[in-house]
Design a protein around this nucleic acid. Structure first.
Length: 194
DNA sequence: ACGCGGATGGCCT
DNA sequence: GGCCATCCGCGTA
């Protein structure tokens, strides 16, 4: 209904945007728009929280396991979606960073709902407020219909895309250790928009 | 406002 | 067999 409002974002971010250090990319993704057309319905949100996973040398990064069936697309070219299944129930989405074959990424941890909020509510019936619709990595994937079928897909042209949005100033950003991990727990690689 | 534990299944050792 | 880049509901305050 109110889904026809003008979307304040343009063309998808180019591969060159992602072909940088994952911490730079994770920071730069704050304020960007994550968009989905899964199921033929547009849902989107403004990114408010991200984390960087640095590669095979980062103990908390899935790349430490090497290239396995699960981590295959983490080693894809920059601007690829790396979607994985966790805790037997949830999906999480990353944007692959750096060069093809390296194995680093930026995890999208939270978005503020922008378009398709009615659809997001249907997909997340337990969410009581708009804010809790997509304020977690598993929640936002459920809200946007992101699943295994998107693993390995291009984030430039596909059902899931990333778009530049309004810039976010450093004064609005908190940098903290990453959440929910058991290794390298003190590395400051989580970026949160206040 | 917090803290804790159960759900649930694929994947690596 | 054990470990998860999580979420939700229930308990205590």
């Amino acid at each position: 209904m109110n889904d026809r409002t003008a979307a304040p974002y343009g063309a998808p971010l180019a591969p060159a945007f992602f072909d940088r250090d994952p911490a730079i990319v994770a920071r730069a993704l704050l304020g960007a728009v994550l968009r989905s057309s899964a199921g033929g319905v547009v849902t989107s949100g403004i990114i408010t929280e991200t984390e960087a996973y640095l590669g095979p040398h980062d103990p908390a990064c899935h790349a430490v396991a090497g290239r396995t069936p699960r981590t295959w697309h983490l080693f894809g070219p920059p601007g690829t979606a790396y979607v994985y299944f966790i805790y037997g129930m949830h999906w999480c989405v990353n944007a692959v960073t750096r060069e093809d074959g390296f194995g680093s990424a930026a995890l999208i941890r939270a978005i503020a709902p922008l378009e398709g909020i009615d659809t997001m509510r249907l997909r997340r019936p337990k969410a009581r407020t708009d804010r809790t619709l997509s304020d977690g990595p598993g929640k936002l994937c459920a809200a946007l219909g992101i699943t295994r079928v998107h693993d390995g897909a291009s984030l430039q042209h596909g059902e899931i895309t990333l778009h530049a949005g309004a810039p976010v100033a450093d004064a609005e950003v908190s940098v903290t250790p990453r959440i929910g991990i058991s290794k390298a727990t003190d590395w400051p690689l989580r970026f949160v928009r206040r």
